[in-house]
Amino acid sequence: MRIEFQMEGGIAHFPGLSRPVVIDSQALSPEDNNELSRLVEAARFFERPTVASAPRSGAADYRQYTIAVDDGERQHTIRLADPVDDPTLQPLLHFLQARARALRRGGGS
């Protein structure tokens, strides 16, 4: 599975934090790989509308996320905006954020 993840926005625009990162499940540990697959399925990711959660009128400084998943058979992209309180999307988002943070630190995936 290949996931492209991007976080944008927030109270300031940080070029270093808004660069998209690619998470290749084959580069993950077997545990993380299984966990990622489980989170994608639990979130019913491929059935989600493209705009899965959007900011309400008048909101500002919210972060936005773009998640594109290619599992070899299916490809799908969704866009989220904070606050993401969907109980199945939230853990997937947290997983991707943690991986993105590790990649930015140069720790690989």
Partner: peptide, 17 residues
């Protein structure tokens, strides 16, 4: 105390976070 290690503050249209 919104979120875990949450790196932001925002206005959601009704309140501050």
């Amino acid at each position: 105390h919104f979120g875990e290690d949450y790196n932001n503050a925002f206005w959601n249209g009704e309140q501050m976070v």
